[in-house]
Simulated scan of single mutants.
Amino acid sequence: MTEQIEKIKKLIACSINPKQKAMYQQLLAKLEAEIKLQVKPEVEVKTNQRPPEPVPTSTLTEPELNTETNPPQEPEEEQLKTTSFFQAIGIIKGEVTLTPQSSSIKIGDKDYPLYILGRGRFLYEGLKKQIETTETSFQKLIVYPKFLHFPSKEKPHLVAFQVVAFFSENNQKQSTLDSVLKDFEFRLCGLWQFIPVCRTPCISVFKNFSKERLEFIKGKDVDLAKKVKFMKASHLPLLWKDSPVKPFRFNPKIQKEEQEKTYFVEIKARFLPNRDVFGFVELLSEPTTSLPKFLKASKQMKGEVLKQAQSKPREVETTPETEPVETVTVVDVESWDHIPTSPTLNIKDTK
């Protein structure tokens, strides 16, 4: 049929008679229409052939998991963002008082305890020399915040700071942090939630996971109480009026699967000494339910440490007026059923 079409096209090109040329054109249109009718079914079959549907990846990569230790994974886009880690670090300045027994910093009209751990002696001597060299006790420090909560919500929490470094001409640590944080600003990264002993929602900063820390915790020669203390979290009260996600609040009346989501947030906040809390300044990244790995002591370990503490004779201190001093009891705010809800390690006693 294609040969006939080619012949008719040649006749049309050579035709001089208008009537004859029109006849050839009608014949050409008829033949071309017949060809389209013959080809159409074949084209439709090809275009309607659907490629085999890919097997859902969930059936291959998502076996049934125990959500207590292996929660469902976030989408790939979220996994790329899990480079975050728990952190609470910032800059404060004030009148520093150093003594071998206890040190403190005065901010406004309040005195806050200063702890110098780790490289303690070296750091203590360095800061002492800095005060002597500058001839002023007014110093600028890089610190970790330390908050102590009490069982009663009515009793205010206590605030202290652990010294990481101090600002001086020879201190290189100051340059990086000072470029992103102003005085009294902190970088806070943790779980945004309510805890039972604080009316203000907190950012809970847990101990980041590492193989070295895991080996330390599983060590048989390490005291159990020391292990639990090492894994204790810091709960930092935060005023955040228009937070994009709600702070988690545990509801004992519903099942774990029905609880609200727990979000990991990274923010910049300012320490407010007039209220001993933090105030939101800036969101550093979008809140996510994909939590970094962290270490947390099991209920079994905490219970054993509590038994050991209760079995010891209770010492009662007295003031010169012979009035008993209230013994500090720190409530365990990390033993809720909703934690862990992420890739965490609930460490058990390995003794």
Rank of each mutant, 00 (worst) to 15 (best):
residue 94 G to T: 04
residue 239 L to F: 13
residue 67 T to W: 14
residue 184 F to W: 01
residue 139 Q to I: 07
residue 99 T to A: 12
residue 209 F to H: 08
residue 158 L to Y: 12
residue 164 V to N: 09
residue 320 P to T: 05
residue 195 I to S: 02
residue 335 S to G: 11
residue 236 L to I: 09
residue 155 K to I: 14
residue 177 L to W: 07
residue 37 L to E: 12
residue 19 K to I: 14
residue 314 R to M: 08
residue 31 L to Q: 06
residue 174 Q to D: 06
residue 318 T to I: 12
residue 214 L to M: 15
residue 108 G to E: 02
residue 309 A to H: 12
residue 206 F to M: 07
residue 307 K to R: 13
residue 2 T to N: 12
residue 83 T to F: 12
residue 72 P to Q: 04
residue 224 L to Y: 03
residue 136 T to A: 02
residue 56 P to D: 08
residue 349 D to C: 03
residue 239 L to V: 13
residue 226 K to R: 08
residue 88 A to F: 01
residue 142 I to Q: 10
residue 331 V to I: 15
residue 161 F to Q: 03
residue 297 A to N: 01
residue 214 L to Q: 14
residue 130 Q to C: 12
residue 118 G to Y: 05
residue 4 Q to A: 09
residue 167 F to C: 08
residue 109 D to T: 15
residue 301 M to F: 01
residue 266 E to S: 15
residue 88 A to P: 01
residue 188 L to T: 02
residue 122 F to Q: 14
residue 185 E to I: 05
residue 330 V to T: 11
residue 21 K to G: 03
residue 327 T to Q: 13
residue 9 K to Q: 12
residue 169 E to F: 04
residue 218 K to A: 04
residue 122 F to E: 13
residue 201 P to C: 03
residue 154 E to W: 07
residue 308 Q to A: 11
residue 330 V to F: 10
residue 34 E to D: 09
residue 93 K to T: 06
residue 336 W to D: 14
residue 290 S to F: 01
residue 333 V to D: 15
residue 19 K to R: 10
residue 257 E to A: 14
